[in-house]
Design a protein around this nucleic acid. Structure first.
Length: 808
RNA sequence: GUGGGUGUGCCGGAGUGGUCAAACGGGAUGGACUCAAAAUCCAUUGGCUUAGUGCCUACCUAGGUUCGAACCCUAGCACCCACACCA
């Protein structure tokens, strides 16, 4: 297939001449365009990836041609659990497995014609990369941003290993369907992301990101303002958090989380048996079911003393209270909280209305605000005022304080897995946790480990048994590795100059950062994008960076579904592979088609018929370029070309690639067989971001030296744009459809058509065009033409913009 | 449940106050070319009606604002995505 030869030829030429290699150039304005780097899986790229990367490539090519110094790099998020599992399955080593997958990805990406600067390739599994993960970790540790704490993990007693959340299916291990996953308390490393919660939250608004991503981040951080109130239980103070201190007088019971660490201290002897039974029961319920399961609880036997009324209210243990939000205990106001209401109804606990509502009967909780009742001196106050007054009263009596709560938690980075960055700590019996000295970095992953039970790193004694850096005594190396989100939190810095010995090249980072356009899926809204923002801020405060936010503009591409609208998946067997499509239609057809379907941020379905039409269209363009006469452009052609430049440029800038492709079709549809060299060049340039291989070929066909990829984007000549030509098209279209309409009605065989137009309109009618399109002989007269042929005196019917018609 | 998004003709999808029966593409139909087909090109593609006009019904549903609404507001419905008992 000819298109394939063309693609291959230009891919080779680009690579040989390294035309996409980028250097810092202070004279040029920079533009850093980045796609979220992929996790290299054995399956390789599918059409969805091709679409994703095409979005960035089109933009990069456009920006490059527009005179920007463009940084457009690619790399691989190469460490991680899937590779480890896949390698175990394939009885190979994660390293070999990953390396192979990467090579395959690179080949596929090159085949797509993506204009990456491959000299900046970054792989996170490279010790020279993850060395800096370790370095950053140590810096965080120094600054108090990394710490170790006991935390619950999913543990499979069969695998003797920790499981990630996604490896837990219905409370069972993904590999051992009969094994319940246990929650085990292990000492884990955390990163203190919450230190930056306020800044992460406040700065979201300033970002040029899609609104839904911004709101997802805000929700994720989930800051709520409320009051901490101290209740006394068995002589001990138990603080709770509430956003509704105005309902304090309506408290009729308390609920402590069934997972609360100190639940036991609340359980009385009489109730112990019942509580144990309850705990056992809810343990067998999987985490997923927990969400839909009915609210249940059990009386602990203890009572809490209400801080203001001194009333005694019962304390329950409940399955619906989160142990790790707030203080793990809540005050319950059944009249004004639906959950409390449900619970109270089930266990027949008293309800007390303290906000006046229009509810006649209590069938559900009234959760709105309103006037206080049954609240002693606060009666009659509005909720808003009461919140403030009650909080102040509590504060005065040291019974509580104003406070805020976050959903956002510190980031647990410990993974008890092999294929990740080793955490640079040595555990010494006498010195404790000793950071590995910087000069000893990187701590490389030992190649020789046994996979199977537990953490593979523990099977290599050379790795684990090391002297303590402090006392030189026998010590054990930390075998936890880092979450791979650690790797992806700063890779964008490395691209700025990946080949330096340092963590990054300061000058290059100053020049390129922040990323101007970041392109990737919405699934990263809360994890990756928050961690990356956190890193930027933390590194800034370590004096390493001088900007606040890593990604100025974020773009989420839509999903590419399979034909019929289903998700592409291996199990459904509907995955469309770029290489298969390229072979049939050429890669440029695939690129053009993918972006022509809908706005890039919208989901789209693959459609074999659709790409066929694109293929035909590009063939037509190819034919045109080969056969067009280079000479002089008609004013109409100049108008069309310049109009197209103007519109397509605007469309690309605003990521409306789909409308840009339509304008290319319209432009091409109306091009005349003679055109000036300059206009022809412009037309080809307009194709270049979308169909780079064909554009290079066209460029050569018309006698130019390579590379069009490095040529400059055409400039609009506004003086050539003339509304007259738009009017001409409009008038001509109308005339054509009118003639056809009449012809259909009279159904006579006729050859001759006469049009009578108002004198001022004459210039807008193109007889030749009308004649060609109606396949009739067309003559146009001015209505005041004395010599006109008008046997039925039709000409008097002519109106402005509407010709009279006589058909012979 | 909460937050966000979407709803347009046979289909995909433009369009965000008049120039809209609504770009562009697909599909379908008719025509040109051809011995024929493919390719290519032209036209048609809500209804009624008339020599090209006019009218009616239309952009999820129901109301509203406006001289005027696919477009703005209100309520509802449907679908999609994310979070999910966050006190």
């Amino acid at each position: 297939m000819e298109f394939n030869k063309i693609s291959e030829k230009w891919q080779k030429n680009w690579e040989a001449k390294e035309i996409f290699k980028t250097k810092e150039d202070k004279k040029k304005e920079k533009c850093y365009i980045l796609e979220m780097f992929p996790y290299p899986s054995a399956a390789g790229l599918h059409m969805g990836h091709a679409f994703n990367y095409t979005i960035g490539d089109i933009y990069s090519r456009f920006k490059r041609m527009s005179g920007f110094n463009v940084l457009y790099p690619m790399g691989f998020d190469a460490l991680g659990l899937p590779a480890e599992n896949a390698a175990i399955k394939a009885k190979s080593h994660p390293k070999e497995f990953t390396e192979k997958a990467i090579q395959n990805y690179i080949k596929q990406m090159k085949d797509l014609g993506l204009s990456y600067d491959w000299s900046r390739l970054v792989k996170t599994c490279d010790p020279n990369y993850y060395k800096w993960n370790q370095f950053i970790f140590l810096k965080f540790l120094e600054k108090g941003l990394a710490y170790k704490k006991k935390s619950a993990v999913n543990w499979c007693s069969e695998c003797k290993t920790v499981l990630a959340n996604e490896q837990v299916h219905d409370g069972k291990c993904w590999r051992h369907e009969s094994t319940d996953v246990e929650l085990k308390q292990l000492s884990q490393w955390f990163i203190k992301t919450t230190d930056y919660a306020d800044e992460l939250l406040d700065k979201v608004d300033d970002l040029d990101w899609p609104d839904r991503i911004k709101s997802m981040q805000k929700n994720w951080i989930g800051k709520s303002y409320g009051t901490e109130i101290n209740f006394e239980i068995n002589g001990k103070t138990w603080p709770i958090f509430t956003t509704r201190p105005d309902t304090l007088f309506g408290v009729t019971f308390m609920v402590v989380s069934a997972q609360h660490q100190e639940l036991n201290s609340l359980v009385t002897e009489e109730q112990r048996e019942e509580v144990d039974r309850f705990l056992k029961k809810i343990k067998s319920v999987s985490e997923k079911e927990m969400m839909v399961v009915e609210k249940e609880g059990v009386f602990t036997g203890s009572y809490a003393i209400h801080p203001l009324t001194q009333e005694k209210v019962p304390v329950y243990a409940g399955n619906f209270v989160l142990a790790d939000y707030g203080t793990g205990m809540v005050m319950s106001v059944p009249a004004h909280d639906q959950r409390d209401f449900d619970f109270a109804k089930k266990y027949k606990i008293e309800m007390k209305e303290v906000i006046s509502s229009k509810n006649q009967e209590l069938t559900k909780a009234y959760v709105g605000e309103g006037k206080l009742i049954n609240s002693e001196e606060f009666n009659g106050m509005e909720s808003k005022e009461a919140k403030d007054k009650i909080t102040k009263l509590l504060q005065k009596n040291k019974l509580g304080k104003k406070t805020t709560q976050l959903k956002f938690k510190d980031w647990l980075v410990s993974r008890q897995r092999y294929w990740g960055t080793p955490i640079p700590i040595i555990n010494c019996e006498s010195c404790g946790q000793v950071p590995v000295p910087e000069k000893d970095l990187p701590i490389e992953l030992p190649h020789d480990v046994k996979f199977g039970e537990g953490n593979p790193l523990e099977t290599n004694k050379e790795f684990t048994d090391v002297p303590c850096p402090k006392c030189k005594g026998d010590a054990k190396r930390e075998t936890d590795t880092m979450d791979t989100f650690f790797d992806s939190s700063w890779y964008y810095l490395k691209y700025c100059d990946p080949n330096v010995k340092e963590m990054f090249n300061q000058k290059a980072v100053d020049y390129w950062m922040p990323v101007d356009f970041y392109i990737g899926g919405a699934e990263h809204a809360c994890m990756h994008l928050i961690y990356a923002r956190f890193f930027t801020k933390a590194l800034r405060d370590l004096g390493m960076l001088s900007f606040d936010e890593p990604f100025t503009k974020l773009f989420n591409q839509g999903m590419l579904h399979a034909e019929g609208g289903e998700k592409m998946s291996k199990s459904k067997g509907n995955v469309v592979l770029p290489e298969v499509i390229s072979k049939k239609y050429g890669v440029d057809s695939a690129r053009f088609f993918l972006v022509s379907l809908a706005a890039p941020d919208k989901a789209r379905d693959w459609d074999e018929k659709g790409i066929e039409s694109t293929f035909k269209f590009l063939n037509r363009v190819h034919e045109y370029v080969k056969s067009v006469k280079v000479g002089k452009s008609a004013p109409r052609t100049e108008h069309r070309v310049n109009r197209a430049i103007e519109q397509i440029e605007e469309d690309i800038k605003s990521f409306n690639y789909h409308t840009a492709t339509i304008k290319l079709r319209i432009l091409f549809d109306k091009l005349e067989s003679e055109i000036s060299k300059k206009d022809l060049e412009s037309v080809i340039k307009l194709f270049a971001p979308f169909c780079p291989h064909l554009a290079e070929e066209f460029w050569e066909i018309i006698g130019n030296k390579p590379f069009i990829s490095l040529e400059s984007w055409p400039k609009v000549n506004k003086s050539k744009i003339n509304e007259k030509f738009d009017k001409e098209e409009e008038f001509t279209d109308k005339a054509v459809s009118d003639i056809v309409n009449i012809l259909n009605l009279i159904k006579t065989e006729t050859k001759k058509v006469y049009l009578y137009v108002l004198p001022n309109d004459l210039e807008f009618y193109n007889a030749e065009d009308i004649s060609r399109r109606t396949n009739k002989e067309v003559t146009i007269f001015k209505v005041n033409d004395k010599d006109k042929c008008d046997p039925e005196n039709k000409s008097k019917k002519a109106k402005p913009g509407k010709p009279a018609i006589y058909i012979e």
